[in-house]
Design a binder for these strands. Sequence first.
DNA 1: GTAACGGTAACAGATACCATTACAGCAAGG
DNA 2: CCTTGCTGTAATGGTATCTGTTACCGTTAC
Lengths: 140, 140
Amino acid sequence: MARNCRFAVAVHIASLLATMEGQPCTSEWIAGSVNTNPVVVRRLLSALAKAGLVHSTRGSTGGSSLARPADRISLLDIHRAVDEEEEPALHNQPPNPACPVGRNIQSVLLRVIERADAARDAVLSTTKLSEVVGALKVEG
Amino acid sequence: MARNCRFAVAVHIASLLATMEGQPCTSEWIAGSVNTNPVVVRRLLSALAKAGLVHSTRGSTGGSSLARPADRISLLDIHRAVDEEEEPALHNQPPNPACPVGRNIQSVLLRVIERADAARDAVLSTTKLSEVVGALKVEG
DNA sequence: GTAACGGTAACAGATACCATTACAGCAAGG
DNA sequence: CCTTGCTGTAATGGTATCTGTTACCGTTAC
């Protein structure tokens, strides 16, 4: 996985919304559970809203809640929403096209990395937010 | 995958060594194909050597070559050699332990991420360096 | 002994990420 | 109407990481 904490915090946020069952949560309250700044939470909520996973309302009684049931939100949905799908990291400088290896290594690597990422995504897509919430409750 | 280019360059390097069939290559020659600085190549070769994948000799006629056949080196071997297995990126600050979600989210997330990483690693481990070299030749 | 190599430390520049402050826009309730 | 409390977002600073580069040491062949 990436080495930023956006995915982890976004799943945390989504789990909080799921346990509140429709009742809107403020970014400040969420930030208290995540232990970070409310703006960080709002940035992630904004990304989740753009992906259609949550719904936010402004104003005095505003807040955020899930846009659909937790069993219809996968962790892949969340990952794609907040970790804007970067291209796989290849060479910084383009390799030497005069070398048979340098000329083709990137396209070959791309195919392999895409297969590997697809395998990882398959696990994330079959894991639903509702499972995470269920596991949280078992944990106690 | 990670967003550094160590893995891509390391596979590039290993592919070069594989196509040279035992003949030692210098870091400067490799750097010419990768299009980077020889020290960058030496750093990666050093990591590959520590993992037992390549063998380097110093001195006037020195250079590096594969330590075992390319069909017995997987891309997972290379990935683990150069991208020192980081722990999955969770929260920066520990979540609020007074919240039922914050108290357990990390252990639940760890299990999921480990399953996802294992799926990705399975693809990398079944992809051998020899396959990459073969694909390079087909590519032309 | 000299030339050519790998190993490694040290440093600079670029980039990414997170936390924080600040402020504009919007909705509910008096 | 207008105050209050929320979201959305821009701007900024600090920190960490990565890459490229220079420099120097140790080693090996000739």
